[in-house]
C-alpha cells in the first residue's frame, strides 16, 4: 500500500517478537521450502560431476562424507525436510478444514517432533567424524 512516509521495519520483520504461531509457521515453511530447492540443485550439480564411472562416484561421495561440514549440513537438511513435511501435513489439514482451532498447537507439535528427530539422527549422521 502506498505510504505517505516510511514507517520502516515497524510494519514488517522489525516486529518479529510479536509474530504469532501461524506467522512463524508461514515463515519457516517458506524458508525450508527455499532451502530444499537450493539443496535439490546443489545435489544435481555435485552428483553430475561424478558420473564418469563407478570409481569417480565413490571417490566423490567418500571425499564429501569425510568432511565434518558436510555431515553437519546433512543433519540440517534432515531438520529442514522433516519440518517441511510435518508443516505440510498441517497445512493440508488446514486446507481440508480439520482442526483449525488447534493450528497453533499443531505448529508447536511439528517443531518439537522436528527437534526430536534431528537430535535422534545426530549419532547416525556423525559416525566417524567426532562421534
Amino acid at each position: 500500500m502506498s505510504q505517505s512516509y516510511n514507517r520502516g521495519l515497524i510494519e514488517d520483520f522489525g516486529r518479529w517478537k510479536e509474530f504469532s504461531a501461524g506467522m512463524w509457521a508461514w515463515i519457516f515453511h517458506k524458508f525450508t521450502g527455499w532451502m530444499l530447492i537450493g539443496y535439490l540443485f546443489t545435489h544435481i550439480a555435485v552428483l553430475s560431476t561424478a558420473i564418469a564411472g563407478e570409481q569417480a562416484y565413490t571417490n566423490t561421495l567418500q571425499g564429501l562424507e569425510a568432511l565434518f561440514v558436510v555431515r553437519l549440513l546433512e543433519v540440517g537438511l534432515l531438520a529442514v525436510a522433516v519440518f517441511h513435511i510435518l508443516n505440510g501435513i498441517r497445512l493440508l489439514m488446514v486446507d481440508l478444514g480439520i482442526g483449525l482451532e488447534a493450528q497453533d498447537k499443531t505448529f508447536y507439535a511439528s517443531l518439537i517432533i522436528t527437534g526430536a528427530i534431528t537430535v535422534a539422527s545426530v549419532p547416525t549422521f556423525m559416525t566417524e567424524v567426532g562421534f
Binding site: S20, A21, G22, M23, A25, W26, L91, V94, D95, Q103, D104
Partner: peptide, 9 residues
C-alpha cells in the same frame, strides 16, 4: 490466502 491465521487472531 496462505493461512497465517493473523486475521483470525
Amino acid at each position: 490466502c496462505q493461512t497465517q491465521f493473523s486475521c483470525t487472531e
